[in-house]
Design a protein around this nucleic acid. Sequence first.
DNA 1: ATAAAGTTTAACCGTTTGGTCAAATCCGGG
DNA 2: CCCGGATTTGACCAAACGGTTAAACTTTAT
Lengths: 207, 207
Amino acid sequence: MAKKENQQAADSTEQKIFDAAHEVFTQKGMDGTKMQEIADRAGINKALLHYYYRTKEKLYESVARAVISKAIPAIRQIIESDLPLEEKIRRFIETYIGIISRNPFIPLFIISEINKHPERFIDSLMPKDLPKPAFFFRQVEDEIAAGRIRPIKPQHLIVNVISLCVFPFVGKPMMRILLGMSAGEMRLFLEERKDEVTNFVLAALRP
Amino acid sequence: MAKKENQQAADSTEQKIFDAAHEVFTQKGMDGTKMQEIADRAGINKALLHYYYRTKEKLYESVARAVISKAIPAIRQIIESDLPLEEKIRRFIETYIGIISRNPFIPLFIISEINKHPERFIDSLMPKDLPKPAFFFRQVEDEIAAGRIRPIKPQHLIVNVISLCVFPFVGKPMMRILLGMSAGEMRLFLEERKDEVTNFVLAALRP
DNA sequence: ATAAAGTTTAACCGTTTGGTCAAATCCGGG
DNA sequence: CCCGGATTTGACCAAACGGTTAAACTTTAT
């Protein structure tokens, strides 16, 4: 009982650090983040960062792993499921946009990380359980062969769908400027994305 | 004549600094770039960075302005031209993907900058001559009214086109992992994007 | 109650960083 | 050649930065 409370207290400091680091790293990246800032945000002494996480690098990797793993399982389940293709595409779009809406830092963080430190991403951050799109590709090809969708390379299709889901969130500030929208208008616009992307993709696939 | 040579020598040091800064800033961002590194890359004494550009911030802004302005004029000309809609979309895709292919750092740089420092972007880096999409929007609406394309909100259309053009380049390392491609295969894949995006968009617009 | 283990603190460390400054050097014109 | 302006150099600066350390404090186990 007393041991359990202590465990929670230890978890609490470690968790405080993690949460603060999560906020600052996702906002300012690795280089722009100072350890003192994380400590300030967590309301603790900076030395504790090293007590619990040893180095800045390791703290960053912990956060990065958590960020990266936030999206993978649900996406993987859909990609590898045996739902009919159209239903799969609908589900993918709905799920992916849902996840990104609730965690808008994810795409930019991952993209930034993988572009700046490809080796680190591949060597230690990349999840082992990435979705395998082979079944999806076969589905696309079967639908093409059956004449139910127009011919398209499956690789391009999946890249198109991902692009349409992700980029408006990544490029949101710029889209907003280009479209001359207020913050409220932009929020509404992004809420429409699920339907708009689904309709666009399915329309593009008509034979 | 002799004065001209001196002018060129001055330009040469300033240009050397700019070119080196361009390389390092676009790769490592503002926070990850050290002034000594730029000086090393330019083969000059670090104090010259301050002689010519005063501060790191000003040097960064010079580079950022150049990066941002690389894409705008050609894009703007197309968006605001009175080409027929289908031709406009073809031209836009071809031009935009062409620019990004030759300058793959542009999207990530701009996205990173605008997400990390929106005020700086809006206050001092944003070009005054951004494309105004109003005419494009009217064209889309006219084509819908005439039954030549299927109904779609013009704002979503332009965001879709931009997303399809840009994101595969921004997310290239991740796409490559997902698709299990070699570097050579990925290059070929990106070369196909012009046609694939054009076909996809035009297919999506069929009535 | 006591000792051991765990956690926290605050001062400190060496290195790095953007920037400064005065002297040296270069250049062009008279 | 001399002079003044422009450019370059190399040493230096203070602050920032990730990290260390030993002592103090807290918690746990006996």
